[in-house]
Amino acid sequence: MIRSILILLVALSVNFAQAADTHVLTDTNGKPIECILLDYERGHVLLEMAGEKYSLPLSRFSPASNRAVLDWAADRALRNGEVRIHISGANRNSERDEDNRQIQHVNYEVTIQNDSKLDIDGLEVEYKIYWLDGRVEVSDPFYFWIDRGEVIKRLNVRERFRFETARITLNEREKRKDTSIGIWVRLYRNGQALHEVSYPSGLLQRVDWKNMSLEAIY
């Protein structure tokens, strides 16, 4: 009985995955083609129709269907992590204020690299940098963050887009200091979050992704 239930669950998950990739394309003669998209590479789309697999050139399809295939392939590449996000360790620069208290400026270098099989357009990068305020107990879950972003109009195959984030300023107050927590980076396309990475890797279990920054309160 348990084995039957497991088989059913696997079958359902496969069906859901297939349904998500089922499209109705149109060929150059205006004929609709219902198919399951499987892969895309170098101007050819691998698809399944009536249980058979075919590799067809995009030139067989209408301009609108071409766009649909390329959008599907780009989103799939992002979900699969084929557009990599690399975050370098925190860059820290320290100085003293007029009261001889330490001030530390922290930022990160982020690299977005396209390791997929196609050029991808319409990328947006959003990131949040988090830190704990030294005026509250370390055990208190209250923290601050800043919100920033970058727009990548087009990222060709094997191309890299590198940028430095905005800086946060950590202050020393009496015997207590602000403490940086890390950075969370998300990749969006057409308004949909498709891939994310944090540094350090355990950051996602410590903080929430929220739409309103507390930077102004700070």
Results as ranks from 00 to 15, higher is better:
Trp72His: 04
Trp72Glu: 00
Trp72Val: 04
Ala73Asp: 02
Ala74Asp: 06
Ala74Gly: 05
Ala74Met: 05
Ala74Asn: 03
Asp75Ile: 01
Asp75Lys: 15
Asp75Leu: 05
Arg76Asp: 02
Arg76Thr: 04
Arg76Val: 00
Arg76Ala: 00
Ala77Leu: 01
Ala77Asn: 04
Ala77Gly: 07
Ala77Val: 01
Leu78Val: 00
Leu78Tyr: 03
Leu78Lys: 00
Leu78Gln: 02
Leu78Trp: 07
Leu78His: 02
Arg79Trp: 02
Arg79Asp: 00
Arg79Thr: 00
Asn80Trp: 04
Asn80Pro: 00
Asn80Gly: 06
Asn80Phe: 08
Asn80Arg: 14
Gly81Glu: 04
Gly81Leu: 01
Glu82Pro: 05
Glu82His: 08
Glu82Phe: 03
Glu82Leu: 09
Glu82Ile: 00
Glu82Ser: 07
Val83Ala: 03
Val83Leu: 01
Val83Gly: 01
Val83Thr: 04
Val83Gln: 01
Arg84Ala: 14
Arg84Asp: 09
Ile85Thr: 03
Ile85Met: 02
Ile85Ser: 02
Ile85Lys: 01
His86Asn: 12
Ile87Leu: 06
Ser88Ile: 01
Ser88Cys: 08
Ser88Lys: 12
Ser88Gln: 11
Ser88Leu: 06
Ser88Asn: 07
Ser88His: 05
Gly89Cys: 02
Gly89Tyr: 10
Gly89Ala: 05
Gly89His: 12
Gly89Arg: 07
Ala90Phe: 08
Ala90Gly: 08
Ala90Val: 10
Ala90His: 09
Ala90Thr: 10
Asn91Cys: 05
Asn91Ser: 11
Arg92Tyr: 07
Arg92Phe: 06
Arg92Ala: 08
Asn93Ser: 10
Asn93Gln: 13
Asn93Asp: 11
Asn93Trp: 09
Asn93Cys: 06
Ser94Arg: 15
Ser94Asn: 13
Ser94Glu: 12
Ser94Asp: 13
Glu95Leu: 09
Glu95Ser: 15
Glu95Ala: 10
Glu95Val: 10
Glu95Cys: 10
Asp97Ala: 07
Asp97His: 08
Asp97Trp: 09
Asp97Glu: 10
Glu98Tyr: 15
Glu98Val: 15
Glu98Ala: 15
Glu98Trp: 14
Glu98Asn: 13
Glu98Arg: 15
Asp99Ala: 14
Asp99Asn: 15
Asp99His: 14
Asn100Lys: 12
Asn100His: 11
Asn100Ile: 11
Arg101Glu: 11
Arg101Tyr: 13
Gln102His: 10
Gln102Trp: 12
Gln102Lys: 14
Gln102Pro: 01
Gln102Ser: 08
Gln102Phe: 11
Gln102Arg: 15
Ile103Pro: 00
Ile103Leu: 15
Ile103Thr: 10
Ile103Cys: 08
Ile103Ala: 08
Ile103Asn: 09
Gln104Tyr: 05
Gln104Ala: 11
Gln104Val: 15
Gln104Phe: 07
His105Thr: 07
His105Met: 12
His105Ala: 11
Val106Ala: 04
Val106Phe: 08
Val106Trp: 06
Val106Ser: 05
Asn107Val: 08
Asn107Leu: 06
Asn107Pro: 03
Tyr108Ala: 02
Tyr108Gly: 04
Tyr108Val: 07
Tyr108Asp: 02
Tyr108Ser: 06
Glu109Asn: 13
Glu109Trp: 05
Val110Thr: 04
Val110Pro: 01
Val110Arg: 06
Val110Cys: 03
Val110Asp: 00
Val110Ile: 15
Val110Met: 06
Thr111Glu: 10
Thr111His: 03
Thr111Lys: 11
Thr111Ala: 13
